[in-house]
Structure formats: structure tokens, C-alpha cells
Design a protein around this nucleic acid. Structure first.
Lengths: 345, 345
DNA sequence: GTGAAAGCGCTAACAA
DNA sequence: TTGTTAGCGCTTTCAC
């Protein structure tokens, strides 16, 4: 919503003046009260807010000039060095910040004590709110719930919905990829994963949903860390024991790259013998041989949406907390194809 | 985002002038191009849009003056007459429309043919997008997926995430209410529901999550319609067979009211003998005797958020589809209490 | 179809 | 803590 310019007297939108007149104060006072910048007496400010709400005045949701604190977990920073998922999310956050006139400051947070310090820093008036990137720890979530400013979880969520969050729709991403493979005739689709995070558990649920009765637990291959070498090793072992499957759904690009290696080493062609699809879809997956088919997570949008949500919550603290899930997109490249005849049935 | 006023020269936000200079045109032309009002040559308009994007100019996302079509299912309209859930959602939509300068028009849609007609009407330039209220039908959802303007499902969602949606977080609402009852010592908590809709299935999942091993299927009481009389009847029958429980979680207010009646008729005190909590939380539940404890769905916020989402999608058609879930709030009134001693163990 | 210029809503500086 | 006032960004009118 922006000012109307010349034609204003015709449009009957609510203006600052309307609110000011009904409250018996100047437009400047109303402006200060609604934007939160400058001094207005508390009870007057409340009266003005109520009137603005009653008249449906479009509240200025601008947080321009304020700062946002980004709490990044050790996991997020590790990933930063390793797979750049975090990097792309940060790009989305930064771009949106520039647009909205905010600034982000990153803080490394790995203990509840770190977080307490961060929350204390965030109490400052210049801070609009806190973004928490890839943080699952129950204690840290509990602490954040009682914070009086907006907190938005990025790439994670709160089961009890007491904190707002933005994450990819992991469950439907995995389900859609699995459905796609089934439509290509695959029946035994392995799920390669590194369990632990809630968001990753959701991906496994999606695979299970789409597999239905065919969700044989022995098709799940687990590794202890998001490392290609571990994934390659684990898959090679399974291959050696004669595990039967015609497709692999990997719950992360690093694992899928490990699968490529193990399959190459075992002489299995991609996608002739085994189709591979990965969830995440970092840009570098298109440079692999063959270019990898992926369920791409909208990483920039994840960051941008989180910031938008933070601003909305800052502008309207009474709004209910919300969980936002972003749709992922299947990018078909060269690593998936029809199930081989012999093994299809 | 709004104009900066006096201090503008200090803040280094991007202005119309910046875009205008880089494109070699006047600010007026850029204004027309970005707002879509007035005449700008198509190729120039595209150049201006690209530049605005590149410079991170805050695009005016205003849809003021346009219209929104609200497709309401038979179920929604039935509910309108019966429980006013729909009424409150509509209030949220209307209030937000007034704020944003849009208009809503409601269309009754019960067949795919109705919907096709609605979508044809929505192709008009003056229509910003379509809101679909309480619509689950697979065929109708499929048709909407291919529509080139924003479509937002209200009080429902798309399993495949190809349509955006806003709904209460039914699963956590039911889980939180159940956890609350368990914390009060209740062990046998009946779940009174009318199965059918996806959103209602989610509530049952939440009950099951929170019950864990205690989720005895015989604790689920199902009725065929959202009517108090049917719920009262069903519960009375169960009571007569000696069904043991100390609390009831109802998946809708109408059913909970039926439970009140059946319990009164059977001489069971609320909450002395049986605690009752309902999900929905329409205002009238506080007038019951005893005032009913509820998991309140933020109905106005549901409508308002749906409209905001529609506007965001209209302003940025490239954004990924999203599912938004709103937190519900436990309103403790007088119908829940500690489990009676005798039956608690 | 475009630019110049007028006019409006809003914010910030300043006085009280 | 508030109102006055200047001044900015944006939109619209109007001339071409």
C-alpha cells in the first residue's frame, strides 16, 4: 500500500488524518504511534492503535532501519562450509533485507547460554526480531517461546506451534519424488538418509506415504553424517549383500553424490540400471555426470519468506503464530528413467 | 513500505528515481509501469520491471481496486447457516479487503462445471485471484491447479502442494488439547468426530499422537454429520454400553454441544465426572453451562491471512506455492478439570 | 506513449 | 510528550 498522490480525494481509503481526527490528535502523533518511532504516551498509543484497527487503516508494516538477528546453529554453519544450502538461504534473506531496508547480523549459537545472550541483545529497540536457522534443540526452542519479540524458525519447525516457522514441505517433496519414480515403473525404491532432524524425518514419512505397502524397511539406508563418503560406503555394502532396488531417493545432495560413486564403482549405470533423485537440489547437482534429477528446495524463497513473516509478526504482535511450508519443484535432468525390465516386476 | 519523508536523503533505500535514471525515463513512467495503471509500452515496461528487480526496488504489491472471487462449497454455506465458522472467516476476509482496497464477490460452487465458469469469470483483468473456501473435491482442485492466477485454499489444503493454502494447524490443535487433558490426569480420552474431510483427519492424527499407546480405537466415536443431536445420540449409546472415559475431545463445537446434552441426560457432571474440550471455539461456546473450554481456531486471521497470501502471490507469480498453518489457542473455561480419582488410574 | 509539474500522504525536525 | 511545519516520494493530470 502506498500513498495516493493527486487523486487521493476521490479514493475513499482510510488515511492518517481520519485516525487523527477521531482521536483528536495530529497526524504526526498518529504516525509516531503506529510506526513505533518517537515518543507517544502509552495509553494514547493504544487508543490510536485501536482506532486504526477499527477504521481498517492499513498499518505501516515497515521495519526499515531496524536490524534482524540471525541465530545460526553449528549444524547450519557446518553445512555452510560443506554444501552451501545455508548460503543460498542467507542470500534470500539478504536480498529481502535490502529491499525492506533492514540489516541482518549473524550470531553463532550452539548452547542455551549463547541463545540467552542473543535474546538479551535482541531486546534492544533497534532489533525487529530473531531468525533461527536450522535449530532443533528443545531447550533453545523453549527459551525462544517466551521472548516478547517475533522469532521465526528457518528450515525447521515447532511441533507445538508456539513459534512461527518457514520450511520446505519436506513430506510432500519426498512423496512427489517417490510417486514420480513409481510412475516410471519403479517398485523397489531405496531411501538413503541421515536421520536425526525433524525435517528429515518428514522426508522419510513422505517416502513411506508414497510407497504405501511397498515401504519395505530394508529399503531404508541410514548413515551417520551428511557425507558422500559415508553414503557411498553404506550403499556399497548393501550392493555387496545383493540388495535389490531400481531407484534411490536420497534425502540430501551429499548422500546422492555418494550414491553416484558407489553405483559407478559397482558398474551400475545411471539411470539405465538405477535411477537417482535427490532432495535439496543445489545448483552444483546439474554439473554431475549424468546431471542429477532433483526435488529442488526454493532456498532463496525460504530466506525471503522468513523475513517477510518476521516483519508481519513485528507489525502485528497479536497475530497467531504460523507454520509456512514452501512447495518444492521436481527438476528432471538425466539421472532418472524407466525401471529396467528385468527388475521392474 | 512507505515513503520516507524528510530524512529520505540519508536512508539509502532504492527509489523510483534510481530505477528511472538507470532506464533513462521519468519517474512517472516507472510509476505507471510498476503499478500497472496507465499506458506504458510493453517492452519498456518489461525493462523497467527487470531493473526494479535487479536494484531490489520494493515493488508496490498493492492490488487496490481489483476484485477477488470467493468460491464457497456447499459444505461452507451449510456451515454458514449452522455454525457461523464460515461467517467469521468471511469477516476476516472482508476486513482485510477494506484495508487493502479490494472487493470480494462470493460464488456458490458445488460442481466442477460451476468452478469452470468461475475460473472463466476470474480470467478478467480486474480479478486479482480466487479464494476457495472449504473445498476438498479432487476434481475441483485439479482444475484450479492449472489456472494462471493465484488460487488460495482457505480451511483446506492440497496434499501435493500445487495450490497454496491457509488452514488452522488441526493436528497440533488436537494434540495440544489432548496433552492438556493428560496433564490433568486423564487417561481415557474419547475422541468425538465426524470423519470425511482431510482437515478433520488431521485432528484425529493429533489426538492419536498425544495419546500414544493409550490411543484405543474404541475411544473414537464417529457420527455422520456435524449435528448436536447425532452426537448426543451416539454418545448416549456408548454411555449405555458402559464405555469408560473421563474426558471427551470433540472435533467440532456442534458435536461438543451434543456431548453436553448426552452427559447431562446421563447424570454425569461436567467437569466433575467428564471433562469436555472442543476444537473450533465459536464465541457462543462461552455461553454454555458450564462455559466450554475450547481450542480456538483464529477464524478472522484465517480469512485475513488468506487474502494477504493471495496478494503476495498476485504481486510475485514466480513465488513457490505455500501451505500456511495457523496456531490455535487453548481457552480454558469451565468444562475441563482434573480426572476423577476413581477412574483416573 | 511520454515527461513536466502539481498535489497528496507521510515522516522528521524543531519548538513549546 | 505533543503540534507545527518543511520536505520527500509517489501518483495523477495535462500538454505534446
Amino acid at each position: 500500500m502506498r500513498p495516493d498522490g493527486k487523486r487521493a480525494q476521490i479514493s475513499r481509503r482510510v488515511r492518517l488524518k481520519d485516525v487523527a481526527e477521531r482521536c483528536g490528535v495530529s497526524t504526526a502523533t498518529v504516525s509516531r504511534a503506529l510506526s513505533g518511532r518517537g515518543y507517544v504516551e502509552a495509553s494514547l498509543a493504544r487508543r490510536i492503535h485501536d482506532m486504526a484497527l477499527r477504521l481498517n487503516y492499513p498499518l505501516p508494516s515497515s521495519q526499515a532501519g531496524r536490524r534482524v538477528l540471525l541465530a545460526a546453529s553449528g549444524a547450519a554453519l557446518l553445512d555452510f562450509a560443506r554444501s552451501q544450502f545455508t548460503l543460498h538461504v542467507l542470500e534470500g534473506i539478504s536480498a529481502r533485507c535490502r529491499t525492506l531496508g533492514l540489516e541482518v547480523e549473524t550470531r553463532h549459537v550452539s548452547t542455551v547460554a549463547d541463545e540467552a545472550a542473543l535474546l538479551e541483545e535482541a531486546a534492544d529497540d533497534a532489533i525487529a526480531g530473531v531468525l533461527m536457522l536450522t535449530i532443533d534443540d528443545g531447550g533453545m526452542l523453549a527459551l525462544a517461546r517466551n521472548f516478547r519479540k517475533p522469532v521465526v524458525l528457518v528450515n525447521g519447525d515447532d511441533a507445538d506451534m508456539r513459534l512461527s516457522s518457514v520450511a520446505p514441505c519436506n513430506r510432500s517433496a519426498a512423496a512427489l519424488a517417490t510417486q514420480h519414480l513409481r510412475a516410471l515403473g519403479h517398485q523397489r525404491i531405496a531411501f538413503l538418509t541421515c536421520p536425526g532432524r525433524r525435517t528429515i524425518a518428514r522426508r522419510q514419512e513422505g517416502w513411506r506415504d508414497a510407497m504405501g505397502a511397498a515401504a519395505d524397511p530394508s529399503l531404508v539406508i541410514e548413515v551417520d553424517d551428511w557425507r558422500s563418503d559415508l553414503a557411498a560406503e553404506a550403499l556399497s555394502r548393501r550392493l555387496a549383500t545383493g540388495m535389490a532396488f531400481t531407484a534411490i531417493l536420497a534425502s540430501g545432495d551429499a548422500l546422492a553424490i555418494g550414491a553416484y560413486r558407489a553405483l559407478n564403482a559397482a558398474g551400475r549405470r545411471i539411470p539405465g540400471d538405477v535411477s537417482v533423485i535427490s532432495i535439496d537440489g543445489l545448483p552444483q547437482t546439474q554439473l554431475l555426470d549424468p546431471p542429477m534429477s532433483v526435488m529442488a528446495i526454493p532456498m532463496q524463497a525460504l530466506g525471503a519468506t522468513a523475513l517477510d513473516l518476521l516483519c508481519e509478526l513485528a507489525a502485528n504482535p497479536a497475530a497467531p503464530r504460523r507454520r509456512v511450508e514452501l512447495a518444492c519443484e521436481l527438476l528432471r535432468r538425466r539421472s532418472d528413467g524407466p525401471a529396467p525390465e528385468g527388475l521392474a516386476g
